[in-house]
């Protein structure tokens, strides 16, 4: 897969337009009886110009894939989009992506088509996934007119659901990473954040296997139940 990305990058540099089959983009898969131990899961993280999905924009996409409970590093996605028109003054200090990087980034339309093909309709996991989901769906819709909903799973829900006794110092990604002693190679780099999120997912999937949560549907049900429990506690 990495070779595929390399070829694609080389073609892009040579000025070719991406070769995509727009009419046959993959359809999202539903949470059915597929075994977790056989499924491919996408773990994704976005860097954006700000927190407001209504006016801010995606500038970098990092993602890794988990297949059969293993992160395969030859199956990953790490791109900065070419969006020189964007104002990044508010967030440049967080993600470190400056104006120059944005001019050298990758053609947005092409990159998103490629992302969709790479995701292959598989379920998408992210930490505080509502944020990434809003941004990605908005971007896919405005750039490609793509509106099919992927199955999203929030890793921020996944962890407390499987580790109710864990006491992270808070609800953030860093807190859970610390809780399991994980290191983030470069925080607020989309791909590095995606990897640490995926590592946390591996920890949760290991526990899931032991708790008899076998299928994607089991997992989805467990999370829904957990969320309901949380909401009940709130009242």
């Amino acid at each position: 897969m990495l070779d595929y990305i390399k070829q694609w990058l080389e073609r892009r540099r040579a000025g070719h337009i991406g070769d995509h089959d727009r009419d046959n983009l993959p359809s999202p898969k539903a949470a059915g009886d597929q075994l977790l131990s056989n499924s491919r899961l996408i773990v994704l993280d976005l860097e954006t110009t700000g927190l407001n999905a209504a006016k801010d924009e995606v500038i970098a996409i990092g993602a890794v894939a988990i297949s059969g409970g293993v992160i395969h590093l030859d199956d990953q996605f790490d791109l900065i989009l070419r969006r020189p028109e964007l104002d990044i003054s508010e967030t440049v200090l967080i993600h470190g992506i400056g104006p120059e990087a944005l001019t050298q980034g990758h053609e947005t339309e092409d990159a998103l088509l490629y992302l969709l093909e790479w995701m292959n309709g598989d379920p998408v996991l992210a930490y505080h996934s509502a944020f990434d989901q809003k941004f990605l769906e908005k971007t896919l819709k405005s750039v490609l007119g793509y509106t099919q909903p992927h199955l999203w799973i929030d890793v921020a829900d996944l962890l407390p659901a499987f580790f109710p006794d864990a006491k992270p110092g808070g609800k953030g990604l860093d807190h859970w990473a610390d809780c399991f002693g994980l290191e983030v190679s470069e925080r607020h780099h989309a791909a590095a954040d995606a990897l640490v999120t995926a590592e946390l997912t591996l920890v949760a999937l290991n526990k899931a296997g032991k708790d008899d949560v076998k299928t994607l549907k089991d997992l989805n049900d467990k999370l829904r139940y957990h969320r309901r429990l949380q909401n009940m506690h709130r009242f």
């Binding site: 990495l2 409970g69 293993v70 992160i71 395969h72 590093l73 030859d74 995926a198 590592e199 591996l202 920890v203 999937l205 290991n206 526990k207 032991k210």
Partner: peptide, 14 residues
């Protein structure tokens, strides 16, 4: 090595 690596998790005792 890095490009061909995969990352696995093992809980205590696995």
């Amino acid at each position: 090595f890095a490009e061909h690596a995969s990352l696995r998790f093992y809980a205590d005792g696995d």
